[in-house]
Amino acid sequence: MALAGEDFCIVAADTRQSDGYHINCRYAPKAHQLSDKTVIGTSGFYADGLNFVKKIKQRMEWYFHQHDKTMSTTAIAQLISIMLYQKRFFPYYVFCVIGGIDENGKGCVYSYDSVGNAERVQYQAAGSGNELLQPFLDSQIGLKNRSNENETLNLTEEMAIKIVKDAFSSVTERDIHTGDCVEIYIIRKDGVECQKYPLKRD
């Protein structure tokens, strides 16, 4: 999942890698840092995810050598959409979200389906637990169904991290494919920090 604040962004993913009822690996990172302003989270078919991230990094490096600058988050967002759509009829089985800081220094999140439909959002859950997570985010970050319609949320980093941890603990409780550990990437203007937070291992 990913969520954007005013001048920061959070991308978080659990590290369980499973196949049906079987757990293949308890520490298989699904979130990857692409630059010091962008992080991607992938879910779906793990091998496709890894390969897709590798391809993105390669394209970013070409871009760097050609233009002598790192790709911006918005540029990466567009690139991902194009790369996914290029394989429209044999898609990467990945559902990704990216989070980062855009050109104006604002936090941003882009969410995708497996064939490259992209949307800029404030928050997004993807993967096996997305149905369980999304309504919670709607309520806590989207402030949906509140009696006071003018209520605004001043999302601080501490609050956001707390929400992420709460969300993942809840999903771990009910989704068998989620668990073990969650990696929380906090993307700020001056770089990326990664925190690890243990989850239930059952």
């Binding site: 149905e131 369980l132 997570l133 999304q134 919670f136 809840s170 999903v171 409780e173 009910r174």
Partner: peptide
Amino acid sequence: ARELYGICESF
């Protein structure tokens, strides 16, 4: 059901 499980677990 799935959506409810997720959010009830939190709330």
